[in-house]
């Protein structure tokens, strides 16, 4: 998504006088055109992420919208207090953009992964976290972020296009069938692609509704999702994020608060580093059961 992100900024935001882009010394072979186009409103704040967020809050207090870019873990964990105290407490339009969410940086290792980012940030006041699953979705999320002009986090990942037939509902993409569902799948982020691959030519495809959530914290289930869950009584949640503070916990809480009866609820999520070994993104997804093969197996267990 990084390339598409950069193109979107260049084409839609770079010309705006009230828009500032700050990078934590990253963006090689991606942000050069943005830098060229924005001139002095493109700032390299160096390898100093905490200061980057403080400076961004200072600029935002003076009327700018400020986007801060880095690798996801660096801009999420290192600057948590700056996000909380400087940005979120003051409800300022500072948007942090983390590239390579989840296990996106693969063999780069655990320092470069962000599998607790939504748990870390989404409880802060005034913030909205966006996890687009597809390139189009990312454009939409940035549009909402800049319209909203409040604290935000954008997690970038694999940049595939949305599947045919998907439409946008409040809070994300929807693939719903005409027939009564036997299973409701709720997912987050680009790992959705693994699930969609598992659904390809699936014999029960017409009995499975899919909801792809992109905005967190998840404070309500859409009417459409509710209707599907009430009908199917079966829920599968898929996310490249730990179970604590992620999508599964939020969906479970909302279902329980409404007292909806379920037959089965399975959460597939990032398991961390269960064997203490490292590999590419696919390797880590597989260890967590987030690969196409395991997702297919889990889906089949509902039928």
């Amino acid at each position: 998504m990084r390339k598409h992100f950069s193109e979107y900024i260049e084409q839609n935001l770079a010309d705006r006088d009230d828009f500032v882009f700050v990078t934590g010394d990253l963006g090689y072979a991606a942000l050069e055109n943005v830098a060229r186009k924005m001139g002095d409103r493109f700032i390299n704040a160096g390898v100093a992420e905490q200061n980057m967020i403080g400076v961004a809050a200072g600029m935002a207090s003076q009327g700018f919208q400020v986007m801060c870019y880095s690798i996801a873990p660096f801009v999420v964990y290192r600057c948590l207090e700056q996000m909380r105290n400087d940005v979120c407490f003051h409800n300022l339009p500072v948007y942090i953009v983390g590239n390579g969410g989840g296990y996106g940086y693969g063999i780069m290792g655990s320092s470069h992964h962000a599998i607790e980012d939504i748990a870390t940030l989404s409880g802060l006041p005034n913030i909205q976290c966006y996890v687009p699953a597809f390139v189009d979705d990312m454009r939409g999320c940035i549009g909402i972020m800049t319209e909203r002009r409040r604290p935000a986090y954008l997690r970038l990942g694999l940049g595939k296009n949305a599947p045919e037939g998907m439409r946008q509902n409040e809070g994300g993409g929807v693939l719903v069938n005409e027939t009564a569902p036997g299973l409701t799948i709720v997912s987050m982020g680009p790992v959705t692609n693994n699930m969609l691959a598992a659904l390809n030519d699936h014999p029960h495809r017409t009995e499975i509704d899919v909801f792809i959530c992109n905005a967190f914290p998840l404070i309500a289930l859409s009417q459409e999702m509710l209707t599907s869950i009430i009908a199917s009584k079966n829920v599968l949640v898929i996310e490249e994020h730990i179970s604590v503070g992620g999508l599964g916990g939020a969906v479970s809480l909302l279902i329980n608060e409404l007292g909806l009866p379920l037959n089965k609820f399975i959460s597939l999520h990032a398991e961390g580093y269960p064997n203490g070994l490292y590999g590419n993104q696919g390797y880590h997804q597989q260890l967590s059961g987030l690969d196409e093969g395991n997702i297919l197996k889990v889906i089949n267990s509902y039928f």
Binding site: G54, V55, A56, S61
Partner: peptide, 24 residues
Amino acid sequence: PFATGSLGHGLPLAAGIAKAAKLK
């Protein structure tokens, strides 16, 4: 303009405000 209490926040914030004035 900013709530403080945790140390080490003021200079980055003030630098950001100063930078904003320069940009404008």
